[in-house]
Simulated scan of single mutants.
Amino acid sequence: MSALTYSKLTGRVIVANLVAQIVIIATGGAVRLTGSGLGCSSWPNCEPGEFSPQFHTASSIHPYVEWGNRMMGAVVVIVALAVAVLVFFAARRGVRPVPSTRLLWLATVPLLLSLVQAVLGGLTVVLALHPALVGSHFLFSAALVWLSTWLVIEWYRPGRPHPIVPAGLRTTGWVLAAVGAVVVVLGMVVTGAGPHSGDDEVGYRFAVDPVLIARTHAGFVWLFLAVLAVFLVLAFRAADDGAGQVRRLRHRGMALLAVTLAQGAIGYVQYFTGLPELLVGIHMVGAALLLATLAWTVAGMSERATRAELTRADSAVPA
């Protein structure tokens, strides 16, 4: 396999890792929304002595939903392992530029956190859906989406980042990211405080006022929109760098605005329609897409040389 083919393969697996991290949020959401959190009473077996669900006349959908999420978890770990292996051996296969320490760490973290997720999944079943574990399960997935997006960015644009916008705009961008993190955490608490706890026998996992926490979550969403508005104003006022980088940042900011507005609309519709399962599930996946778009936007505040550009520069240096 040539270095170019190896590089393309690695890039595709890195993108597949990001997709898998988003998909498992959807399958995990399906577990919660169908009340299948204890569909399998054991771990790693579904039932004591039975690795997978056994069909019989009294079977319900719950074991299969839970088992499907576990299988998706296995896929996530396998893809994350492939990412780590491919990136670590990239230099040996002649891929240029050689992966930096930053890129090596980004390639390792998804595997490590995915393994932590597997252990958390087992503990969640053993401890009968303890709310702290259920909540942290989602937050780990959210962090994995964020980091996996940065991994995609770092692979395809591995050059050292150089800021292309004023300091005030960069500060606003990182404030936006911080507020976004608060929004996601509060969204997790809202879900845990409502009727979709993951277990048919428990109406909620967090003993907090669901209306109050939902309004707090909505308040931070409005704050996120306000900061995003400031970010966009500053981005459109920033001088163009001549290479189109600032223009692309504006486009990314507008894409983030579109995702945010869609998420907000879904959030309000689900709240006023009694939290239908389908809308809640879409909202959970939307949170992952929001995080990925947010990371993509924040990364756009800096110019990064592409892999092809660095490779040409490297080959142009006299031996």
Rank of each mutant, 00 (worst) to 15 (best):
W105G: 15
S60P: 00
S100N: 13
W105Y: 12
V83A: 05
L81H: 02
L18F: 06
L104N: 09
R102Y: 10
S60E: 08
S114T: 11
R93K: 14
T124S: 15
L113N: 03
L123C: 01
V116L: 15
V116A: 15
A80K: 03
V19S: 10
G29S: 09
R70V: 11
F89L: 13
A90Y: 06
V87L: 06
V31R: 00
N69D: 06
P99I: 09
S36T: 01
V23A: 14
S100Q: 07
L18D: 00
L18G: 01
T34V: 00
V79W: 09
A58I: 01
V19Q: 04
P44K: 09
G68D: 00
T101V: 14
I24M: 10
R32K: 04
G39R: 01
R70A: 06
A16K: 01
T101F: 10
Q54W: 07
L33C: 02
A84H: 06
L81C: 08
V79P: 04
I61H: 09
A84R: 11
V65L: 02
P110L: 02
R70E: 05
Y64S: 07
A58G: 08
Q117P: 09
S42W: 09
A80P: 00
R70M: 11
V75C: 12
T57V: 13
G68F: 12
P53V: 09
G94V: 12
G122I: 09
G39Q: 02
V76Q: 03
L123N: 00
S59F: 09
V116I: 15
P48R: 13
S41N: 11
G28A: 08
E47D: 14
S42D: 15
A16Y: 02
W105L: 13
L38E: 01
V15M: 10
L33R: 04
S36P: 03
S59V: 14
S52T: 15
L18P: 03
L123K: 07
W67P: 04
S59R: 06
L38C: 08
I78H: 04
A107V: 05
V23T: 13
I78W: 08
V77L: 11
T27R: 07
P110D: 00
V85E: 01
G39E: 01
S41I: 13
S100F: 10
F89R: 14
V109G: 01
L104G: 07
A74S: 13
A80V: 05
I24Y: 01
F55Q: 11
S52I: 14
L123D: 03
L123P: 05
I25Y: 00
G94S: 12
M72V: 14
L103R: 08
F88T: 13
G49F: 13
L18C: 05
V65M: 06
P99Y: 11
V19N: 05
G28F: 02
V95I: 11
V77K: 03
P110T: 02
L103I: 08
R92W: 10
E66F: 06
T57N: 13
G68Q: 05
G28D: 05
Y64Q: 05
G39W: 00
F51I: 13
C40F: 05
Q117R: 11
E66A: 14
V75L: 15
L123G: 04
T101A: 15
T101C: 07
A58H: 12
V95G: 08
T124Y: 00
V23G: 04
V79M: 06
S114H: 07
L123H: 04
V125M: 06
A84D: 05
A82Q: 02
V109R: 03
L103T: 10
